[in-house]
Nucleic acid binder design. Sequence first.
DNA 1: CACAAAATCACAAAAATTGTGTTGAACATG
DNA 2: CATGTTCAACACAATTTTTGTGATTTTGTG
Lengths: 253, 253
Amino acid sequence: MKRDERQQAIMDLLVEQGSVDLEDLAQRFVVSKMTIHRDLDELEQAGVLRKIRGGATTEAGTQFESDFRFRERRSGAAKDRMTDEALKLVEPGMTVMVNDGSTAAVLGRRLVEKRPLTVITNNAAIMDALRDESGITLIALGGTYSAKFNAYFGVVTEDALDRLRADIAFISVPAVAGMEAFHMDDEVVRAKRAMQASARQSCLLINHTRFERTALHKLCDLTDYTAIITDDTPPQAALDAMAEGGVDLIVAN
Amino acid sequence: MKRDERQQAIMDLLVEQGSVDLEDLAQRFVVSKMTIHRDLDELEQAGVLRKIRGGATTEAGTQFESDFRFRERRSGAAKDRMTDEALKLVEPGMTVMVNDGSTAAVLGRRLVEKRPLTVITNNAAIMDALRDESGITLIALGGTYSAKFNAYFGVVTEDALDRLRADIAFISVPAVAGMEAFHMDDEVVRAKRAMQASARQSCLLINHTRFERTALHKLCDLTDYTAIITDDTPPQAALDAMAEGGVDLIVAN
DNA sequence: CACAAAATCACAAAAATTGTGTTGAACATG
DNA sequence: CATGTTCAACACAATTTTTGTGATTTTGTG
């Protein structure tokens, strides 16, 4: 492994973990700590990380932390766990819908594991990822592009969904409270609803930190989902509410 | 300049020119010919080029030559000239449709010069390019992805077009004979037709080498276009046919 | 303030990249 | 088809880059 590759690998780790340990890096790449020091120095010079005692972290408050790919890969482990569960619901030959959001993007990319599949999505990241995969029939939902969500929305999206049918839809939301799911943007809500309406069953993906929160628009009731997957145990209050409402929660850990 | 950079630069030149000269490369990068030899050997090993006496060419008949990016950058000058003419038909504030194809992709990217605009397309390259441009409202047409054309097609695309309206549609085809335009794929023909039907006026972009050729499916008559732009003077027979048919040809050179 | 851990520095060792001269193969040409 | 010329391949040496080691300084912590 050459210098450049190692530095790239360090960046990958940094993006994934948010910080890296010097000692650990030296062991991982089987080089001396001095070499790692030099790598980190260069990367710091290039402005992509900040050296701290014993390792390095992502430069706080720069473009980096708000970078889409960054957010996507950060806490990637949790998303991977949720994705593992979600994939269990998918069988080769199915038609699968996936909505916007970085969690959904992670799932979208991993759908290749279940090919052949037909994948319907308005998520630009998924389109990019599955575009050239053989065994995946990619049906993109058109619409007006939203940079904020890196996905397509609007009447075009909704009309297209109205004419398509899928076996399962994977939906993610930023807020769940009680027995209801929420989202801050009404365009997004409409797209998610259209997707759920066109799929035989729907599966909700929700980060455990997002329970007990609301957002401006209510999307639907949790009873609308045939499966709800989260990455870690949510607050007791949330658990109670769902138990009482009679919905099953799959905790992936 | 390091080894990797040099090799990358060689590939860039290769993509641009189709072939590279060993002697020339040695001079350009101020290294010995032996070094260039070694670079080319490695690149050949990697399968991205083919060494020939005195230099290297793109591996004929491999994925490379049919590579989308390759075709797109090759003979880029001609496309730029056509694009110049096409852009004259666009005014800020308009709603513009652009179809599939590498020529169209070049035009799509340059539409930023006329912003603010609303751009409607099924061309994946254009989606990627305009996605994060401010002042451009990007409306993607969904559909089933076609790797061959790097664009989206099918009922989803056509239905979406049926519900949209644009000021002008830019259409490109691989074959024109007499007073008719052709394309080898019926899915693509349907999308182009739908686009033309949804635009107030249509403009055809056609490479001058593509005149006097036909393809399996007839798309439409040339009289359906309000403007026809080509990059160079076409064969006399083609000119005669168009003159007789009463259509104006804009030759951009 | 003292102690330990970590960072830096300087220098040597190792590895890689590159250039040169030579040899052999391919090419054009009469 | 023989011959001179050009170009590619090879081997080796020179050079540059990368890396490791130990000494020295800096930093953080109790």
